[in-house]
Design a protein around this nucleic acid. Structure first.
Length: 867
RNA sequence: GCCGGUGUGGCGGAAUUGGUAGACGCGCUGGAUUCAAAAUCCUGUUCCCUCUGGGAGUGUCGGUUCGAUUCCGACCACCGGCACCA
């Protein structure tokens, strides 16, 4: 064993051993409990960043810990390889997207391997390969057969100069990113998946996701946005037509004082024909910003249409307004307004002097007496007043009877509305999976026959300046014949949204080599994923689509489980300090953290920061690592300098996994020092006791020897809980540091002491091996063991070592700490109380006070209440 | 605006069930080692005071309790998300 830790002598060798032994390749083993741990696969951008390092270290630590628990652990890795950046690179560097992607995969794969993650690389997949995407083409056609897929017109961003469709991120301030032309909205035919058919189940099953962060569950629920209510018809005066509105509060129907329609509503359009002012107002609404915060605070504006409706029950005449707060895309694009019982309607009524009629009062008399409808809306449910035949009913009763009344009058019905829209999966981009459809003039949209799958995306393509999809100009791709009638036909040139690929990759990892079917029986062995780890930015779309796909695959008979991910861990962002110098012409010059020197005062507070040219630098606090703030840190450089284990220890130690983590260079050095200290202790121990068999005589230990053993097993107890239940790897590391500090103060050199030290060091190496697997392997061997440390079982807790004869108890006086006392572990309350009273400091305080009460909390403290 | 989260030393964070606030690490102080430095090791490090001890202290103000970082109420700040959803 070398006396100094040097990662370069260890990491490549250990990684080679894992590779040679195929240590992480797994197969289905019915005798072992399976554990499927998955980290969200990366887009192959070319370089690993710290976000990846953190994400994948968390997944790897969990996987390795579960392996030591004796489980059959699957941890795969692959590439979310389709997407826009490859097209951008193609235009910029004149390299085909496929080539660019392949090169990036190779480079990032090599970087991932230097981190020592326990991946089963034999299952590696890339979504841009035909052997992967052919199955989603197949699956799409299954859904097509079932009627879960349909085609309809939808809006796209159209660049009129480049004559191409733009993705949202290619639109900058309303202009095409390359041409600078003002982007137009165009309606074109696109494919949709009926996710709304699964809205109820997707919502209902959120309840099953007990081990998902509450935040993510709420976001999913809100996104689906189910609301129960009544759809009802208002007749239009002097017309046979009706106007349909949706309400969740039919109990307030008798308080309606106006109706409001969205600016895009046909009724609004019609009313505007003869009314230039209304036309202007509708135009104005189109230009409104649509960010939620602005929407919520913006002024409620409206314009009377001059059209009147009739109340479905009273027949009263009710004005119809156009209002900027009504959304065409929700419900029927029209609402009934009850100013007395809805805040927004109240604000609007106040602004435009519309009547406010109270029809609900509180069931609680004191509340009811305080309602002043002229001061604000009363939005709670209660009892109906002034509501004709419905007066006296509670809101709940009224809800049903009004709905019934409307139903009978054929003027309304109970309905459920969702915010969730069907998923548009067509993209007019090149670098994606071709949609397997052929258009025939006679037969319409026809599925590509099974035997013709996959429809392969041509990879040898040249991009022109416009950035439009090359396959749209490739007759050899799109010219084909109709599978039904044989006539000349055209192939679909749109590709799938890349969320399509990422919606089922977790399942494909269970059998990526299957070229006969999408999935097989192996899927039911491994699924569902036991632990999914990834960024919170996927809280809604990716996770919802994956849940949707899981249910689709289940209903297709491909898998059995209802939900894909049992446990979800959303890791926090990686932040770093930002430094800048004010530029001469305004703006900031951002200085990389590695180029600054920080001066501190004697309290450790920062007093001055300078850059490498000696200029004084300002700090803008911590923010997410990004190019724009030049505060990124390259993992490759750190692996080279400190090794993967140091990087792994630091990223797990700096913060709990779900919180944001602040990058710190000195923190990394601290992690490195910690490994060195442990190395040094093992080295000295191994040198002192070469090839020794230790014989521990548990019955004849000194107090300090017993204390160390107690500490070892107390640490093991805590670390086991931290790693398995709490996922607080930071405290697991801290507990080991504490133990190592204690051990270094344990100066006993006797036979028994050496045996105890040996036991302690072995346990430390085992406990830390999931976090720093390379150095743990080396230390394991240095301690005289053979084989691989990661295949050792997680250590058992020695209960006898945890037993103590004496414990320390706190003495409090009126809740303030006044002393400590060592007592026998079995001492009864009276004994403890007596000991506490004998404490010198306590006596002093009690001199001129009377004891009122004594509280003894077993094993913890004595509190003497006196005054 | 609504929903969710967070607020603890100079900094990251710990305190898991209402029971020693500040574990562990960073930074800083002093020392050992060294010709010197780096590295390493040791010491101290919440603030204040009349210092064998005492007082204050976990965003602010109140409350419950023998005892509150932890529970309750009101407020403030920051972060994240969003849907003016009828």
């Amino acid at each position: 064993m070398q006396d100094q830790y040097n990662h370069k002598n260890i990491e490549p060798a250990v990684q080679k051993m894992w590779e040679d032994n195929k240590s992480f390749e797994v197969t289905e083993d019915p005798d072992k409990e399976k554990y499927y741990c998955l980290s969200m696969f990366p887009y192959p951008s070319g370089k690993l960043h710290m976000g990846h390092v953190r994400n994948y270290t968390i997944g790897d630590v969990i996987s390795r810990f579960q392996r030591m628990q004796g489980k059959n652990v699957l941890q795969p890795m692959g590439w979310d390889a389709f997407g826009l950046p490859a097209e951008n690179a193609a235009i910029k560097n004149n390299v085909p997207p496929a080539k660019w992607t392949d090169e990036n995969v190779a480079e990032m794969g090599a970087q991932l391997k230097t981190m020592g993650f326990a991946y089963d690389w034999s299952r590696e997949l890339a979504t841009c390969k035909p052997d992967y995407y052919r199955w989603e083409q197949w699956f799409f056609l299954k859904l097509f057969e079932k009627g879960l897929v349909y085609r309809k017109k939808a809006t796209v961003n159209w660049d009129p100069v480049d004559n191409t469709v733009l993705a949202n991120e290619q639109v900058v301030d309303g202009r095409g990113w390359r041409s600078g032309a003002i982007v137009e909205q165009r309606e074109i035919d696109q494919w949709f998946l009926k996710i709304t058919a699964y809205a109820d189940e997707l919502l209902e099953d959120v309840r099953k996701l007990e081990n998902w962060p509450q935040q993510v569950r709420t976001m999913q629920e809100n996104w689906i946005g189910r609301s129960e209510g009544v759809e009802l018809e208002f007749g239009l005066e002097n017309s046979e037509e009706t106007l349909s509105v949706f309400t969740t509060r039919p109990d307030t129907l008798m308080g309606v004082s106006y109706l409001a329609v969205a600016p895009q509503h046909p009724l609004a359009t019609r009313a505007a024909v003869e009314n230039p002012e209304l036309t202007d107002f509708i135009e104005e609404c189109k230009n409104m910003k649509a960010t939620e915060a602005e929407m919520a605070t913006m002024e409620k504006k409206g314009f009377a249409t001059g059209i009147y409706a009739t109340h479905p029950i009273t027949g009263e005449s009710i004005p119809i307004w156009v209002a900027n707060f009504v959304l065409m895309s929700y419900g029927s694009g029209a609402v009934m307004a009850v100013p007395a019982h809805d805040e927004r309607d109240w604000d609007f009524a106040q602004t435009y002097g519309l009547p406010i009629k109270q029809v609900i009062t509180s069931t609680c008399e004191s509340v009811a007496n305080n309602i002043n409808i002229n001061e604000g809306a009363f939005t709670e449910k209660g009892v109906l007043i002034d509501s004709g035949d419905f007066t006296g009913l509670t809101s709940e009763e009224a809800l049903d009877s009004i709905a019934e009344f409307l139903q009978e009058a054929k003027k309304g019905r109970k309905t459920i509305n969702y915010r969730l829209r069907d998923w548009g999966v067509s993209r007019q981009r090149y670098w994606g999976c071709p949609i397997p459809i052929i258009y025939c003039d006679d037969c319409g949209a026809v599925a590509v026959p099974d035997e013709d799958l996959p429809v392969e995306l041509p990879t040898d393509v040249v991009f022109d300046e416009s950035g439009s999809s090359p396959i749209k100009q490739m007759p050899e791709f799109y010219e084909t014949s109709c599978p039904k009638c044989g006539k000349a036909a055209t192939r679909e040139t749109d590709t799938f949204d890349t969320f399509f690929e990422s919606s089922w990759y977790y399942a494909r990892f269970t059998g990526p080599d299957n070229d006969k079917s999408m999935l097989d029986e192996r899927a039911d062995y491994w699924l569902p994923v036991d632990q999914y780890v990834g960024g919170i930015e996927h809280a809604v779309l990716h996770l919802l689509y994956a849940r949707f796909f899981n249910k689709l695959m289940r209903d297709e008979g491909l898998i059995e489980c209802d939900e894909p991910f049992t446990n979800l861990l959303t890791q926090g962002m990686v932040l770093a300090d930002t430094y800048y110098i004010d530029g001469e012409s305004g703006g900031q010059e951002w200085i990389a953290p590695k180029d600054v020197t920080v001066e501190r005062n004697e309290k450790g507070k920062v007093v001055k920061i300078t850059d490498d040219k000696g200029r004084e630098v300002q700090t803008d606090g911590m923010s997410k690592m990004s190019k724009s703030k030049n505060n990124g840190v390259d993992p490759a450089e750190l692996i080279e300098k400190y090794g993967a284990d140091t990087l792994r220890v630091f990223s797990m130690f700096a913060a709990p996994p779900d919180q944001s983590m602040e990058w710190s260079d000195s923190g990394v050095e601290g992690a490195n020092r910690f490994i060195k200290r442990l190395w040094r202790q093992v080295y000295i121990h191994a040198e002192t006791n070469p090839n020794k068999d230790f014989d521990l005589d548990l019955d004849n230990l000194t107090d300090s020897q017993q204390e160390i053993r107690h500490k070892v097993y107390a640490t093991l107890t805590k670390v086991t809980d931290d790693m398995s239940r709490r996922y607080t790897f930071n405290t697991a590391i801290a507990a080991n540091m504490e133990l190592i500090n204690d051990l270094s103060k344990f100066k006993d050199d006797g036979e028994q002491a050496q045996a105890i030290r040996h036991e302690a060091l072995e346990k430390i190496v085992l406990m830390l091996s999931p976090i720093m697997p390379h150095v743990a392997q080396e230390l394991w061997v240095s301690l005289g063991n053979e084989g691989t440390v990661m295949d050792e079982p997680w250590p058992e807790i020695d209960e006898t070592a945890l037993e103590q004869s004496k414990i320390q108890m706190m003495i409090q006086l009126n809740g303030k700490l006044r002393g400590k006392v060592d007592v026998d572990v079995n001492a009864d309350d009276a004994t403890v109380e007596a000991l506490a009273m004998e404490n010198e400091n306590v006596k002093r305080f009690l001199e001129d006070a009377t004891v009122r009460k004594v509280i003894v909390v077993k094993g913890r403290l004595v509190n003497i209440v006196a005054n």
